[in-house]
Simulated assay, not measured.
Amino acid sequence: MRSKITIAISLLVTILLIGIVGFKLIMDLSWVDALYMTVITITTVGYREVELPNDTAKLFIVFLILCSVVIVGYAVSVISEYLISRSSLKELREKRKQKLIDSMENHIIVCGYGRNGRQAVEKLIDYNREFIIIEKDQEVIDNSALGEEFFFKGNANEDEVLLNVGIERASTLITALPDDADNLFTVLSARQLNADLKIISRASEETSYKKLKFAGANNVILPDKIGGEHMASLIVSPDLIEFWDNLSYGGNEGVNLEQVSYEQMFDGDVGCSIIDLNLRKKTGCTIIGYKSADGEYTVNPDPEMMLTTGSKIIVVGNTQQIQNLQKVYRINNEIT
């Protein structure tokens, strides 16, 4: 298509030059008058000639008109075809993207592709989770290495945009917008559209924490506070923090953390304690935490503690041990 456009433009420039030079030589006009005569002849607008043409000039004008009709017609058709094809191609891509989004179930919606949003997406890719990013800045989308198919351009505050990305079928919403007010409106809209949605929101100010929780966010993260506490902890207990930094979540190297739900371990209501689970012998992993069905956490739980429906255990192990755990309990890195 681009070659056709190049040919069309070349033909237009050629006929324009032929007309200018022809009128200059045949009618002895100035360069400006020659350009004027060429343009009104090619465009057939019917303006008055600079001077009456002689017989030779008339024949040249006839030749110029016949050639320009063909060339201009060809150029108009090629340019129109190019513009229409670009518009149609864009519409086709948008339809394909929307069709893909409509097929998503229990996917993750990430609002904003700034620093925090990008980090969240990188982790979702590690976990092979299905996600779609809402981003209103086209430049951010163009500069991303992900590809445009992972983005939906729009404002996450708008209900229509949230509905277009399948908010009613999504399992989790991560809102990482730079402004707390935008995050608050997004949380309010999302919670209204999907009461069962898990919402994780970013906040810049501590005063926004309670507002976001009240609006419906399940978890509110304060990156600046976490970063400050982390730096201070490196002074107070550097060895402990360095060890913690070596832990990874779903990575391929080092020490890993993993969570396992009761439903992944058992089919139905089975009475079992932590010591009866014998997880260390089965997988090599060690249980370091327990979360009850009510959401209460217990660090280093008692071996006699009973596992109940809706509860979860948090385990630690090296890469091979975590892989053994995932095989035994058919864990597919799901966010729960």
Rank of each mutant, 00 (worst) to 15 (best):
M1R: 08
R2G: 10
V21E: 02
G22P: 00
L25H: 04
M27H: 02
L29K: 03
V32Y: 14
Y36F: 13
M37D: 04
M37F: 14
I40D: 13
V50A: 05
E51M: 06
V62L: 10
V62S: 12
I71V: 10
G73L: 05
Y74Q: 05
I79T: 13
S88F: 15
K90V: 07
K90R: 15
E91D: 07
E94C: 00
D102V: 08
G114V: 01
R118Y: 03
K123C: 06
I132F: 03
E135G: 07
D137N: 10
D142P: 01
D142C: 05
G147F: 05
G147E: 09
N157H: 02
E158N: 13
E158V: 12
V161W: 01
N164G: 08
I174R: 04
P178C: 10
P178R: 08
V187Q: 06
R191S: 01
I200Y: 03
R202D: 00
T207G: 07
T207K: 14
S208E: 04
Y209L: 12
K213W: 00
G216M: 00
N218P: 09
P223E: 14
I226N: 13
S233I: 04
S233F: 10
V255M: 15
E258S: 08
Q259S: 15
C272R: 08
K281M: 14
C285I: 03
Y290S: 09
E296G: 12
T298H: 10
P303T: 04
M306G: 08
K312Q: 11
T319E: 11
Q321Y: 00
Q326Y: 10
